[in-house]
Design a protein around this nucleic acid. Structure first.
Lengths: 307, 307
DNA sequence: TAGCGCATTTTACGCACATGAAAAGCATAA
DNA sequence: TTATGCTTTTCATGTGCGTAAAATGCGCTA
């Protein structure tokens, strides 16, 4: 500042500033902290070391500290004896979105995804076309398009513009997707180097049991999506082959785009069946019977393809 | 211009201006035109309709026209009776790089790739770190990093910086790559919907015979790379499953990085063997014996993995 | 009438600075 | 000794305008 701001006579009282600005990364980190609390089933009083969180998220402590502060304002965490933070209350029954709305970037990302899936956006778009439509800065648009590209959902065209990948609209594509998953996932299971991590098995199992335990129809769609995607991706990762894992992740991203449009709530019966099948597969893996696990997995994907 | 430029008295004679500025896209398009002339075996006198080229490259006529002009300066094409361009001479024996050096973007892309593979670049880098190192505009760096990301070779980190994937240098990843290819390609061959296109079989066969016919060691590395990549990708495409095809294309991109690093010229014997194996697989496919084709393919990939 | 040259419109990139945010370093208290 | 709070440094984004270049439209010619 080149000059002092004139003394504003108590115009805007700064005491509580609830409209604190939080960056997209801070919000995203905060949401991941919430997920972690839920996934690990942390009880009130459990410590939340900023350094650990930073390490496991791959960021520095700065955004983690800010995120914890954000959560403190929400009453989810509180100071732990002057040093650090701890879980303040049980949030296992609360909706993640209610606790903390998505960041602007995240929201817009999903909005563009839905718009594309619903056909409101053409398959080929230019940045300049999106700019007025969503009324955001050019950088934001570029960033999001880059994210779409990184997830295999869009491509930069030579010259000008971007092109979204073909959606799974047609039934043929839909079947092709499941065929691909069957090939890749079963192959992953049967790989010689396959090795399941007991900790991850337990984590997956708990997540599925939580879904099953929820009253019928009370499972938020995005939660089931996460659990499901994580199951399949983790399974693929146990092959030790990062290409297999990457292939499944891409399929999950595609499916996410697909879901964005229909947003159909899975029939509770269907959801429970999927859950049970997942657990049965985990059982087989844990018992070391991979052939059986692969057979179950194939059947599971087949029946999912028919829905 | 707000004022007229003072009349420069014949200082710079503009007649020949060899240092014409050509954009990256124009150069890339020009190179693709050269490849097309070679691949289709176009003879001198063959017309090169700008509109057709533009359509098949997915760009507008502007860069195509500029590219043709560039090639005219090189004497590869010439005006065809006042309208349009035609092939001027036989270039099947000439090196593509000698005819037309890569664009700045392309060159830098390969340079960064090599630097990373050689360990001159750390696995995690920031844009600001690359900026002075390669002395180019920020946009160029971003564009290249985006391309790396799109090809699965790098990832944007949350917060700051980018991270290159673990290179294929490690033997484990190398084997994983081939394992993945075996899984996907063999599955593609055995898919119920598999249907080979006779025209494409012929085209592939001719390309391979051209490579075999070349005097030993006279096959440019990039030519063999393209023939090889096209063989595997086309095979996958016959499955009718676009995800299988996409998976193979991605693997080919990865391999390109590999090649850029070692730049080892394949031993002529090895190359001939690969060629022969490819043709044998095509024979089996043409005869409708897909099980045998899959067995051959598996063996082919296995032996390639050992090299 | 298909393909080309040419003119117009649209699109995105370049550049430099200002700024907010993340990373890294350091001292300290439990 | 570890994890935290605080400070410093580095990094990337936002912004706005000028410009190169790609996309598009039109008239003309073979």
């Amino acid at each position: 500042m080149t000059h002092d701001t004139p003394p504003q006579p108590l115009a805007e009282p700064p005491p509580d500033v609830p409209a604190e600005e939080a960056s997209d990364l801070q919000i995203d980190v905060a949401r991941r902290i919430l997920q972690r609390i839920r996934d690990l089933g942390l009880k009130p009083g459990a410590r939340l070391p900023a350094a650990d969180l930073a390490r496991s998220f791959g960021v520095s402590r700065s955004p983690v500290t800010a995120a914890l502060e954000l959560l403190r304002e929400k009453g989810v965490v509180c100071a732990a004896g002057g040093r650090g933070m701890q879980v303040a209350r049980d949030i296992s029954a609360e909706s993640l979105t209610d606790l903390l709305p998505s960041s602007a970037a995240e929201t817009l990302y999903h909005r563009i995804m839905s718009d594309r899936a619903a056909g409101l956006l053409p398959q080929e778009v230019s940045e300049a076309e999106l700019l007025p439509r969503y009324a955001v800065a050019r950088g934001m648009i570029r960033k999001l398009l880059m994210r779409f590209a990184a997830e295999g959902l869009a491509r930069r065209l030579p010259g000008h513009g971007w092109r979204f990948v073909d959606t799974l609209e047609s039934d043929a594509d839909f079947q092709a997707s499941y065929e691909f998953r069957i090939i890749v996932e079963c192959a992953a299971l049967l790989t010689p180097a396959f090795r399941a991590d007991p900790d991850q098995i337990g984590q997956l199992r708990r997540a599925h049991e939580r879904v099953l335990a929820a009253p019928r129809g009370e499972v938020p769609g995005d939660e089931w999506f996460r659990v499901n995607a994580s199951f399949h991706e983790t399974l693929a990762s146990w092959s030790g082959n990062r290409f297999l894992q990457e292939a499944i992740r891409q399929q999950n991203n595609l499916r996410q785009m697909q879901e964005a449009v229909y947003y159909r709530v899975l029939a509770p019966a269907r959801l429970q069946q999927s859950c049970t099948e997942h657990i049965a597969i985990l059982d087989a893996v844990e018992a070391g019977d991979r052939d059986w696990a692969a057979a179950l997995l194939r059947q599971h994907l087949r029946s999912a393809a028919e829905s």
